[in-house]
Amino acid sequence: MADPERPRRSTASHRVVTWWLVLGILALAIFPAIAEKFYLQLITKIMILSIFALSLDLLVGYAGLVSLGHAAFFGVAAYALALAAPASDAPNLWLTLPLALAASAVIALVIRALVIRTAGVYFIMVTLAFAQMVYYFFHDTRLAGGSDGIYVNTRPSLEIGSIDLAQDLHFYYLVLAVLAGVFIFLGIILRSPFGRALQGIKANEQRMRALGFPTLRYKLAAFVLAGTLAGLAGYLAAAKEGYVNPELLAWHQSGMVLMMLILGGMGTLFGAVIGAFSYVLLQEWFSNLTKHWQLLMGSFIVLAVLVLPRGLAGLGQSIALRRRSSASSDDVEP
């Protein structure tokens, strides 16, 4: 029997999302067969940034917390891998990954605890400032090479069969698997009671409190989860590049990932991934055009904010809407 409470549209759109997801994973899975080495590495980088953008989407797009310090968690996990890696052997992924995630989670917990009552524009400034504190910590102390950074000499090993992450192709598939996993994990969470509560908090926090939700605790959980997932991306980035430096957690990095979300459209998981792809490809294109690519990127961002209020995804939607409405008006014509 059809459940009248559940609008049919949502189950239908759920099926569409699943199809697109399967299609996207398939496309990325067969990509290495047709791509050169350079593009393999580029797509690996984009997939890692997609995970980073997804983690921020949970915070900004679903819980309504605009953070300008998200790179801190990305960078801390990267540094954790670099510091935990033995000098010559390959670090064991099963030991170093949990360590790196825990480091990001703890930093997220501490920062959120300090800013627990701040919201809105305050939250933006305070997250930026604390991220900068972490930046200076790695930049000024000799703990991890100061401003020069340090090397991760060997990629982590998975210790499963003949998988060798030192090979770019194997590493590519690991990152793809992690991206798919994070995407599905977030998809599940957002439909869960926890995810619904976050969306309620974003829509109207006062009402949620009046209903009985301890909203601060929900936001804390979201912040730590988002920080941990950003750490996952940071760990993969450090493993891929074999090198970490303070720029990984500089605030430009935080601004960049926010820009990805806006480009793709926040509050949809696909938006985060589309945003990461479009941003990096755009950056590649601009930097092929001119040494001063930041001028083009900056102007593009300014224009995007002025003319694309709902991101590329929003642009796609409004084009589709216009098509549909013009199509239906065509029907009326004899």
Partner: peptide
């Protein structure tokens, strides 16, 4: 605020490159 952050972030890139 999100859009204010982004537009002015874009401005920084423009100013620095100029």
């Amino acid at each position: 605020h999100l859009y204010q952050v982004l537009l002015t972030f874009g401005l920084i890139l423009v100013f620095e490159e100029m």
